[in-house]
Write a protein that binds this DNA or RNA. Structure first.
Lengths: 141, 141
DNA sequence: AAATTTATTTAACTTTGTTAACTATTTACA
DNA sequence: TGTAAATAGTTAACAAAGTTAAATAAATTT
């Protein structure tokens, strides 16, 4: 294997360990990583249906259904049945849900905040561009 | 939130979805993602003990123990008790284990290979440098 | 020699994903 | 228009892979 490839490979796998560990361990007041990501996604992108979330997060509809059920119980989301197609339920973040995302004690959010604040702006921009390319490569399959 | 930060944040979370999906779904002949990562790590870095693996992958000793047990059953690893301290068991990749990693049908390996072959060399090097910084930031805590 | 520490394993449990089967609703079309 | 197919979501049963607590065996400390 070529040197640049090898360096990338090692760093990437090292990084992957952290991402996985963060997902496995991150549980904040009974709100797991995927729970949090759902709330945050709906906060930033506006209301969406369960189906959209399943596609976004690449998990099955029943998995989303269980997550949403818990988030409704915790009053972090509310559900609105659409009159034009009553099979669809739009999910919306509550004030409490927004507080969860905005909260400064939020570890999940702070990881990306910390990363982006510790890199020079141009380096961050270049990194984001390459990472976007990588995501697009991954999406192709 | 600043524009560059926001772009990073969105791309990062999108990327994270793929990493997690890959870990959840990736099961190749009964060998899951962590199983494979263990074999590959030992292949590339030489024999190591369970304790080392637990530290490397940020998972508990019992989790490693279960993974290793399966990998021994599948003859992908062998175990050698060290005479100088018989509590330590060095884990080593077998020929069969090496074939798993080297195999061209190997999806896990091919993700990083595909990424690195689709980026210009200097972009890959810059990306690796920034990603290494990020891993170091994450390691600090 | 006894107590403590260390590496590993076993047992019991939790979380979070999966597929299969179900309900409710909408759409297609003979 | 009435029936069949498709779609969104849920429930049930299960699997994978993590966790902590407790057990074992070996080495080290006192």
């Amino acid at each position: 294997m070529e040197k640049a490839q090898k360096a990338f490979f090692e760093t990437y796998t090292d990084f992957q360990c952290y991402v996985i560990a963060q997902v496995n361990n991150g549980d904040f007041n009974g709100v797991g990583a995927t729970h949090y990501n759902i709330v945050e996604y709906l906060y930033r992108n506006g209301p969406a249906t369960g189906k959209t979330l399943a596609q976004k997060f690449h998990i099955s509809a029943p998995a989303i259904s269980r997550h949403v059920k818990l988030l409704l119980e915790k009053k972090l989301l509310v559900q609105k049945q659409l009159p034009e197609d009553r099979r669809n339920f739009l999910l919306e973040v509550t004030g409490k849900g927004k507080l969860l995302v905005d909260g400064s004690e939020n570890q999940r959010h702070s990881v990306t905040t910390r990363i982006s604040s510790m890199l020079p702006k141009n380096e961050l921009e270049q990194f984001t561009r390459t990472l976007r390319k990588i995501v697009d490569i991954l999406k192709e399959e």
